Amino acid sequence: MELSRHLIAILNAITFVLSIPILGAGIWLAGRHHTDCIRFLQGPVIVIGLFVMLSSIAGFAGSYLRIRWLLWIYLAVMFLLIVLLFCFTVFSFSVTNKGAGEALSGKGYKDYKLGDYSTWLQRKVRSSNNWNPIKSCIKDAHICESLGKYKIASDFYEAELSSVQSGCCKPPTACSFLFINATYWTRPLNVDADPDCYRYSYVQSELCFDCDSCKAGVVDKVRHDWRKVAAVNIVIFFLLIVVYSAGCHSFRRSHEEGSYAKGII
């Protein structure tokens, strides 16, 4: 019983320490300026971090101090956290299982099409309530201005652009715009190739920020971020199962000892 009690205390102390940066990151994201680019993950991050912290405190105190009602709370919260992590991880993989950039011959970057991604992610960026702040952030971050170093078309075509730069700062390749510089293209040769051919603006503050390709570039970034979070959640999920199993064992042993003591009396 002593070994089990100390083991649970150590495991919960570790999970408590891990919960601090998780919760802190979520609060920091939530408190940022309203033009934050992508904030789809902050809610789940805060909830997960808070659950981990509360369950760790209850588990540490309940097992180490032998407070049975705290163990009850600990086991209940831990069970909910495991279910939450499982659901969130499955959901993350389900909405990110499709979509990728289209490789282009002779180009270092890719083109992105919104229709290639999950319907749920498409709805997120098509909503003006979500897209307007994202677009504002892209402008404020001067993401496209950083491409000004490419003065020659051949250098630009070999550049490895991010999905946001490729989707938002230039017109789709299918339109066959003529390269002037990295953020200024003119006279499309195939204007009917893509609806974004009409959406591209020569105004430097607009460019392709209202294009579906820009939204697709943002979705592609979200997709990669979610898959990273989901991969980490898998590790945390199995760790929590180990901690939860140890907590159940400790609670059962505590209950047996209490029943045994009553029998002697």
Rank of each mutant, 00 (worst) to 15 (best):
K98H: 01
C197A: 07
Y157L: 14
I138F: 05
W226C: 06
N129L: 14
E160T: 15
Y198I: 06
D111L: 05
H142C: 07
V95N: 00
C169L: 04
E160C: 03
C208Q: 11
V95A: 06
N132C: 01
T183S: 06
P171E: 07
Y184H: 15
L114R: 05
K215L: 00
N132R: 03
G108H: 12
V125N: 01
E206K: 09
E158P: 01
C211E: 11
A193Q: 07
K170W: 03
V191H: 04
Y109K: 05
G148H: 08
K98P: 00
S127A: 13
T173A: 04
E160N: 14
S154P: 11
C208A: 15
D192E: 10
N129W: 15
D210A: 11
N132V: 15
D196W: 11
V219Q: 06
S213R: 08
F177I: 09
G167N: 02
A153V: 14
S136H: 05
R187V: 13
K139C: 07
W185Q: 09
N130R: 09
K135N: 12
I180P: 00
F93G: 01
D111M: 03
D192W: 11
N190F: 06
S166G: 07
S94Q: 01
N130Q: 13
N190T: 04
A182N: 08
K149D: 12
I134W: 01
C208Y: 06
E160V: 07
P133Y: 14
N181D: 15
S146M: 04
Y150D: 09
E145C: 04
D196F: 03
T186C: 02
D225Y: 10
A216Y: 03
A216M: 06
S127D: 15
A153H: 15
S136P: 06
A153I: 10
N132Q: 14
G115M: 03
C144E: 00
G99D: 06
G99E: 02
I138R: 05
S105V: 12
A141K: 14
G167E: 02
S127I: 00
P172D: 02
S128A: 13
G108T: 11
A153R: 14
I138S: 02
N181E: 15
C197T: 07
S146K: 13
K98G: 00
Q165C: 14
F156L: 10
S136D: 14
G167R: 01
H142L: 10
D140E: 15
S163T: 05
S146N: 06
Y117P: 08
V219H: 08
D196Q: 12
D210C: 08
K215T: 02
Y184K: 13
S176R: 12
F156P: 03
Y184D: 13
G167V: 09
S146P: 01
Y109M: 05
G108S: 12
V191G: 04
P195G: 02
H142M: 07
E102L: 08
Y198C: 03
F93S: 01
A100Y: 02
K124H: 14
Y157M: 07
I134V: 15
I152M: 05
P133R: 13
V95F: 04
C175P: 01
Y202Q: 14
K110D: 00
Y200M: 06
